[in-house]
Amino acid sequence: MIRVQAGWRALLRPGDWLVVAAGLALCVYSALSFWSGGAPDGIIVRAGGKVVAEADLSRARKIEVAGPLGTTLIEVEPGRARVASDPGPRQYCVRQGWLSRAGAVAICAPNEVSLTLTGRGSDYDSLNY
């Protein structure tokens, strides 16, 4: 049995190991680059239709945005963001919770504030009907 295994291993020359290793590296690299779609890399905050803040998602911070009803508080953590508080009556954008996919949007319509996560490979770039 040991001799048989040694026989198979003798068929692998040094360069062959290199090619195998390069192939495996290519697998890992392609998995990381093609399967990371949907990971967000930044946020865009709009108020009244105008961009008021753009930030990356690398570190935690809080952003205050003024609207017609008052102040909307946006909270950013590494890899995710949410609307922490909003003066709107129904709180839809706050109850959406943490957004962590590229293309995700939380809209606080009464206060005219929106939070958008940007990134390569957004699930949707536009919707129409």
Binding site: L11, L12, R13, P14, G15, D16, L18, V19, V20, G23, L26
Partner: peptide, 18 residues
């Protein structure tokens, strides 16, 4: 045409597969 001492049928096979 890769050097035979270093690269055998396994290299050929993997490169061709890619």
């Amino acid at each position: 045409h890769l050097p035979k001492r270093w690269f055998g049928p396994v290299s050929h096979s993997i490169l061709a597969a890619f």
